[in-house]
């Protein structure tokens, strides 16, 4: 159920990226999509009333397995957030450059390429 909400968020992002005219809004759509995937990943490892996945010397391994949340997706999400940050930075830098050259953020006016 809650997984499908991630999908809804993803579709919203996709819709935004594909239909908006303003290039900054397109980038925002991209970010929304990224967040939807990150949420989905975190949800995969989530467990109701789970504890933080930290092993101490006194921890009982079996009990740990039964109660802790899955730590791996969290590690993946941190990585993917960093990658997303890089892509977003580059995209925004391109937007600024495009604005300098064309004097507009409107994608329908940025049309030199054809064919």
């Amino acid at each position: 159920m809650i997984y499908s909400l991630c999908f809804v968020l993803f579709i919203i992002g996709l819709y935004c990226a594909l239909t908006k005219k303003n290039i900054v809004k397109i980038v925002i759509g991209l970010i929304i999509m990224e967040y939807a995937v990150n949420l989905f990943l975190v949800l995969l490892g989530y467990r109701k009333d789970g504890v933080a996945p930290i092993v101490e010397k006194t921890t009982n391994p079996l009990e740990f397995l039964a109660t802790s949340v899955d730590p791996l997706p969290q590690a993946l999400v941190v990585t993917s957030i960093v990658i997303g940050l890089g892509v977003t930075t580059l995209a925004i830098a391109l937007c600024i450059k495009l604005y300098e050259k064309y004097g507009t953020f409107d994608i329908s006016e940025i049309r030199r390429l054809k064919g």
Binding site: I23, M33, V87, A91, L94, Y102, I110, L113
Partner: peptide, 19 residues
Amino acid sequence: HEELEASFKYLILASIGST
């Protein structure tokens, strides 16, 4: 002009792919 436009187009489509 052209390079920036092409790069932006490429970035958006390929990033959707990466997602």
